[in-house]
Amino acid sequence: MARPTPELINALRKTAQSLKNGAPYQWGHMGGCNCGNLAQELTNLSKGQIHQYAMQRHGDWNEQAEDYCSTSQMPIDLLINEMLSAGLLLEDLKHLERLDDRQVLSRFPVEKRYLRHNMREDVVAYMIAWAELLEEQLLAKITLSSLQEVEFA
């Protein structure tokens, strides 16, 4: 599971809102699919740029994650590296593309856990649930002892 960072939580929420408001969505397009839309938010690259980078190598996001090399200078690897720097893990890219991370799905009622990976509404619901999960994990790390150094006047 991703590291819960404010940057990632914010990007998930913004991406979900953007999709909800009608941002271009096309599951079979590397720049307009589940990962592609999140990549747009995290990297400030366009749908077209992301797709162009991905097409320099074979495969979907799952295969791109499998073939990822941190020392490569291939544009798709640089893009993935930027996403990983925001807190994502390679496994998260695979789960996001299929909407199948068990921790995220456990936040839905049992009858609503069968999300369709290529349906905008399901992608939005998944991203919101994931952002909430990460925010809870982040807040759980904050303790009152970290605030003891603050003096109140």
Rank of each mutant, 00 (worst) to 15 (best):
residue 99 L to T: 14
residue 107 R to Y: 07
residue 63 E to T: 09
residue 45 L to R: 02
residue 47 K to F: 15
residue 75 P to R: 03
residue 109 P to E: 09
residue 48 G to F: 15
residue 45 L to M: 10
residue 59 G to Q: 11
residue 65 A to W: 15
residue 69 C to T: 11
residue 78 L to C: 09
residue 85 S to W: 07
residue 96 L to E: 00
residue 80 I to F: 02
residue 40 Q to H: 03
residue 110 V to H: 01
residue 56 Q to S: 13
residue 79 L to T: 00
residue 70 S to D: 15
residue 40 Q to R: 01
residue 81 N to L: 10
residue 87 G to C: 04
residue 106 S to K: 01
residue 90 L to H: 10
residue 77 D to R: 00
residue 100 D to G: 08
residue 40 Q to K: 01
residue 50 I to Q: 00
residue 75 P to K: 00
residue 94 K to T: 07
residue 71 T to C: 03
residue 93 L to C: 00
residue 56 Q to H: 06
residue 60 D to I: 14
residue 45 L to G: 00
residue 88 L to Q: 02
residue 41 E to N: 07
residue 89 L to M: 08
residue 69 C to R: 12
residue 74 M to G: 05
residue 110 V to P: 01
residue 99 L to I: 14
residue 39 A to W: 09
residue 75 P to Y: 05
residue 65 A to N: 07
residue 91 E to H: 04
residue 85 S to N: 11
residue 56 Q to I: 07
residue 81 N to T: 13
residue 107 R to A: 05
residue 64 Q to P: 01
residue 60 D to Y: 14
residue 72 S to E: 13
residue 55 M to W: 15
residue 38 L to C: 00
residue 38 L to V: 04
residue 74 M to K: 07
residue 52 Q to A: 12
residue 59 G to R: 13
residue 63 E to Y: 09
residue 51 H to W: 10
residue 91 E to N: 09
residue 47 K to E: 12
residue 96 L to T: 05
residue 43 T to F: 12
residue 59 G to V: 11
residue 89 L to I: 07
residue 63 E to L: 14
residue 59 G to M: 11
residue 43 T to V: 12
residue 52 Q to K: 06
residue 74 M to F: 08
residue 108 F to I: 04
residue 91 E to G: 05
residue 67 D to W: 15
residue 42 L to N: 06
residue 86 A to H: 01
residue 67 D to M: 15
residue 56 Q to D: 04
residue 92 D to V: 05
residue 106 S to A: 09
residue 111 E to L: 06
residue 41 E to S: 08
residue 62 N to R: 15
residue 52 Q to I: 13
residue 66 E to A: 10
residue 78 L to S: 01
residue 60 D to L: 14
residue 99 L to G: 14
residue 66 E to Y: 13
residue 55 M to H: 15
residue 104 V to I: 08
residue 69 C to Y: 13
residue 40 Q to W: 07
residue 73 Q to V: 11
residue 49 Q to H: 03
residue 61 W to F: 02
residue 78 L to H: 01
residue 87 G to L: 04
residue 105 L to Y: 02
residue 39 A to L: 12
residue 106 S to G: 07
residue 41 E to I: 13
residue 84 L to Y: 00
residue 88 L to R: 03
residue 39 A to R: 11
residue 48 G to M: 15
residue 98 R to L: 11
residue 92 D to Y: 04
residue 68 Y to R: 08
residue 56 Q to Y: 03
residue 62 N to A: 14
residue 83 M to W: 08
residue 98 R to W: 09
residue 71 T to V: 09
residue 94 K to S: 04
residue 101 D to C: 03
residue 41 E to D: 05
residue 111 E to T: 07
residue 72 S to F: 05
residue 52 Q to N: 10
residue 63 E to N: 06
residue 105 L to F: 05
residue 57 R to D: 06
residue 51 H to M: 08
residue 106 S to L: 12
residue 110 V to N: 02
residue 81 N to I: 14
residue 90 L to N: 03
residue 92 D to R: 15
residue 68 Y to H: 12
residue 43 T to C: 13
residue 96 L to W: 04
residue 55 M to P: 11
residue 102 R to G: 15
residue 107 R to L: 04
residue 70 S to G: 11
residue 76 I to M: 02
